[in-house]
Every structure is written in C-alpha cells, then in structure tokens.
C-alpha cells in the first residue's frame, strides 16, 4: 500500500534576477533566502525517497492557449520536456541549463487519470504539454544536480476564468491520495505558486500583494483548518491575487487533516513568498 511520504508547497519563481530586476536588492535577498530553505527541504524530500513526485502547478499561457484551457489536467506518457522558448522573459530563464527531458511515473499518472474519470472527475489528459517554471523551478531547486524521481505533473487552471473551485481542487487532492493509497508506490506531493500577487490580474495593480490575506491563509494551514480554506471563493482569490492557492488546495486535499509547518514566509511587496511542509509521516 502506497503512502504520501513528503508534502510541501512553495512559491515558484525561484530566480533572484527576476526579483532583483523588478523589486530591487531586498527582493533578491528574500528569494535567495527562500531558495536556501527550499534546498534544505529538498534534503528531507530526498531522504523520504519517493517512487514518484506529484507536482501540482498552473499554466501561464505557456502550454495551453485560449483554444482550450483544461480545468484540471494530468500529464501522461513516458517523459516530459522542459519548455523552451526563444527570448523567454525572466520567469522562464530560470529553466536555462536544466535537463531537457524528465521521466514520468506513467502508472501513477494513468491511475490518477483513469480512476479520476471513473470517480466523476472529468480530468483532461495531455501527452505532450511541456513544463514551465511553475513545475521546474521548484523541482530543480529541491533536487539540485541529483536525479529527480519520475514525475506526475498535474495542472490546475488558476488564471483563466472560470477556474475550478477551491472545494473541487481539494476533492481532486483527496482523490490523488486515494490512488496513492491503493497503489504500491510511495509518492511525494509538491504544490507551487503564490502567495498573493497580480491582484485581479490587473496590469495596473502589478506590484501589489495582500499580506493580511496571506498571513490569514498561512495560519489556517498551520491550524489545519481546511474547512475555512476550501470555503475560499473565486472572488476572494481573484481580488487578493491568490489564484495559485488552487494548486495548494489540491495538496491540502491530499494531506488532510495534516497541519502545515512554515519553513519560510516573507512579505516582499510585489508578492509574498512562502514555503510550507506538512507532517505526513
């Protein structure tokens, strides 16, 4: 019987130059401190030796276009490539130099997809979507130069309204935990993104975050108050710039009722950064 042997969530632009350029020296210092914490978390993750690493993240209109935006999507197939884009902006320059392909845990991914559809989750499947910084910036920081276990990338539509609800994301996480428990593999689950930034997805408000909202959310995670977190509305997430919390809600469903431990929390102004672990052992 499989277990979730490690669970964590963290911000996903782990790239000092981006914050140095857009925020200044204090932004650079803060993300460098976060990167140090995530590397330490990576040592705990590697010690847990998962057979598969489920990564829950969002697309930034890199992979899916307005032709079709899946609410929830499982990446299936044997391997996945790193997104490559000529003249990429800062976000995705964090991917330069990383391996071009990563193995997938085909059996676990297929199980999540097929059992999900049987259970009433109309998950989309992709055999070709590549991974952008939302996946690979945290994974590469956690693992450094060491081999990454087979991945199960899981996309949540965080940015193109109408997004899936907090409750639905939590339920998808419960489903992932059930599939892991029914299988023979130990899995780690990592969710990425946040905390608050880009409120209302308004260009005029880029540069603002909502520290009071973020402090409240982190306290709820520490307390294990998943009822309050699943009650978050699309309006609250949109107005505070917390769209990517939907990724974290999938993880919360996977680990519930575990409580979070805060490894890092920093209020930068443009965005608030965080890294949390859950006691799942």
């Amino acid at each position: 019987m499989g277990r979730i042997v490690y669970a964590a969530a963290m911000s996903h632009v782990l790239y000092p130059d981006y914050y140095g350029e857009n925020v200044g020296p204090h932004g650079r210092r803060m993300v460098e401190e976060l990167i140090g914490v995530v590397r330490a978390m990576g040592r705990t993750l590697m010690a847990a030796a998962p057979d598969a690493l489920v990564v829950v993240a969002d697309d930034h209109l890199n992979v899916f276009s307005f032709d079709a935006v899946p609410a929830l999507c499982v990446r299936v197939g044997r391997s996945v490539s790193r997104m490559v884009q000529a003249d990429a902006i800062e976000f995705d320059r964090a991917l330069d130099g990383l391996p071009e392909r990563y193995p997938l845990h085909e059996d676990l991914a297929n199980g999540i997809l097929e059992k999900g559809v049987q259970a009433g989750f109309d998950f989309a499947a992709s055999w070709s979507a590549p991974l952008d910084h939302a996946f690979l910036s945290p994974v590469s920081t956690l693992y450094g130069d060491r081999p990454v276990p087979p991945l199960v990338p899981f996309w949540v539509n965080c940015f193109v309204a109408p997004q899936p609800t907090a409750q639905r994301c939590f339920a998808a996480g419960r489903h992932i935990a059930r599939v892991v428990a029914e299988g023979p593999w130990n899995a780690a689950v990592v969710a990425t993104g946040g905390l608050s930034h880009f409120p209302e997805l308004s260009l005029a408000r880029v540069g603002q975050s909502d520290p009071a909202f973020d402090r409240r959310i982190v306290k709820l995670m520490e307390a294990g108050d998943h009822e309050a977190l699943t009650a978050l509305t699309a309006k609250e997430l949109h107005e505070s710039g917390s769209h990517e919390l939907l990724n974290w809600l999938v993880l919360l469903g996977a680990v519930s009722p575990a409580r979070a431990r805060v490894r890092f929390f920093g209020e930068m102004g443009r965005i608030d950064l965080a890294a949390l672990e859950w006691d799942v052992a």
Binding site: H60, L61, N62, F66, I89, F91, F159, V160, L201, V206
Partner: peptide
C-alpha cells in the same frame, strides 16, 4: 487581454 500574456 490576459495579464500573463501581456507581461511575457
């Protein structure tokens, strides 16, 4: 217009 497209 999508913010993420506009900034990237």
């Amino acid at each position: 217009g999508s913010l993420h497209l506009l900034v990237s």
